[in-house]
Each structure stands twice: as structure tokens, then as C-alpha cells.
Computed example of a mutant assay.
Amino acid sequence: MPRQSPPSLPPAPDDTLLERQLRDSRTLEDAPEHVIQRTLQTLQGLQQQRRRTQAAAPAGLRQRVLAALSFDSAAATGLAFGVRSASAAPRQIVCSAGAVDIDLRVETADAGRLQLRGQVFGIDGACAVVLQRDGAALAEAALDAQGQFLLSAVPPGPATLLLRSDDAEIELPALDLGAGP
């Protein structure tokens, strides 16, 4: 059988050619002018539409959102989480509404009253926290710089917690604030 020769290697590339090709590959071409103009017009149209929508909204109008319950330790069984001591741990309630998360802790306070301690994540700016029963405010607080709040001396019973900012209102699902956690 005739013996085959190994394939030959291509000639060594010219360093100048490689350098030029590398430089060219890093250069981006501009988009065609008509594409740039069309994109700018679209963005301007969206900005104008947003300004018209904001101007058409009556002053004081808020978007109202119902938060979804993510977790309630009162509904969790002791076996799933383990029992570490005989003392009652604070009840934890976690709710979400879009990009906003609310972590609420319900603790027993003096004289059969409750204390609600919480933190809100995802709200920038001023926000009031209002606890209501039958449409009447039971307690109210403002968020601090870390998004935390405290509602003290809350009587047990059903209640609704609202978060109010200038342009939105988030309502948590109805809470049954029993005699303790």
C-alpha cells in the first residue's frame, strides 16, 4: 500500500494581518440613521403618552393592590418547624404585592393587647401603615428609613392592614388577630 503523507499545515499567519483583523472585530458599526430616528420617535411617543396619562389622573387617585399571603406561621404545624421551647414565638405573616414584600410579626403585649412589628421591602419614599377594623383606623405608623414600623396596644380581633404611599395603596388579606400569636 502506498504510504500517505501527513496533511500540511497552513502557512504561519502574518502578525500584521492578525492585528488588523482583531482591531476590526472590536469596532462596532453605527445603526442605520433611519433605525435611530425611528427608535427616538417611539421613545418620545411613549414619554408623551405617559405624561398624558399622569395628567389625566385626578389628584389624590391611588392605585389599589391586594397583597397575596405567602406565609402565615399560625397555619403551619408545629411538627413541620419543630418545637424548641414552651414559650410562644411571635406569629409571622409574609405577604407580597408585585415588587413589594411585607414581613409582619404579631406579639402579645400587656393587658391582652397585641403589638404588630413589621418591615416593608420594595417601597421607596414615604409610606403610612394603617390598621383598620370595620373601616375605622385602630393604629397608624410611618415607615422608618429601613422600612420598619411598630403598631402598639392593638386589640385582638379581625383587622385589615393597609400601606399607603402618595400614588398606591396595598391591602393585606384580612387578618384574624386572635388573643395572641
Score class of each variant (00 low, 15 high):
Q54A: 14
Q54P: 02
Q54W: 01
A55C: 01
A55L: 02
A55H: 01
A56P: 05
P58F: 05
A59C: 01
A59G: 14
G60Y: 07
G60L: 07
G60I: 09
R62E: 04
R62T: 14
R62Q: 10
R62K: 15
R62M: 09
Q63S: 14
R64P: 00
R64H: 06
R64L: 07
R64E: 05
R64V: 12
V65Y: 09
L66F: 04
L66T: 13
A67N: 03
A68C: 06
S70G: 08
F71N: 06
F71L: 12
D72M: 07
S73H: 03
S73V: 05
A74Q: 13
A75K: 14
A75R: 14
A76Y: 08
A76P: 02
T77D: 14
T77I: 01
L79P: 06
A80G: 14
F81S: 15
F81C: 11
R84N: 12
R84E: 08
S85F: 02
S85H: 11
S85Y: 02
A86W: 01
A86H: 11
A86N: 08
S87M: 09
A88S: 14
A89P: 08
P90T: 02
R91G: 15
R91T: 04
R91K: 11
Q92P: 01
Q92T: 05
C95S: 15
S96A: 13
S96T: 14
S96N: 12
S96W: 02
S96V: 12
A99C: 00
I102V: 12
I102T: 03
I102S: 03
D103V: 12
L104R: 01
R105L: 13
V106H: 01
V106I: 06
E107N: 13
E107M: 13
E107S: 15
T108V: 12
T108N: 06
A109C: 03
A111R: 15
G112M: 02
G112F: 01
R113C: 05
R113H: 12
R113I: 01
L114R: 11
Q115R: 15
L116Y: 04
R117G: 05
G118D: 00
G118I: 00
V120C: 09
F121K: 13
F121H: 15
G122I: 00
I123D: 02
I123T: 09
I123K: 03
I123H: 05
I123R: 06
G125C: 07
C127R: 05
C127F: 06
A128K: 14
A128Q: 10
V129A: 01
V130Q: 03
L131R: 10
L131D: 00
R133Y: 00
D134K: 13
D134Y: 08
G135R: 15
G135M: 11
G135K: 10
A136M: 11
A136D: 12
A136Q: 15
L138H: 13
L138I: 14
A139L: 03
A141S: 14
A141M: 04
A141E: 02
L143G: 08
L143N: 04
D144P: 00
A145N: 05
A145H: 03
A145L: 07
Q146Y: 07
G147L: 01
Q148K: 08
Q148H: 03
F149W: 06
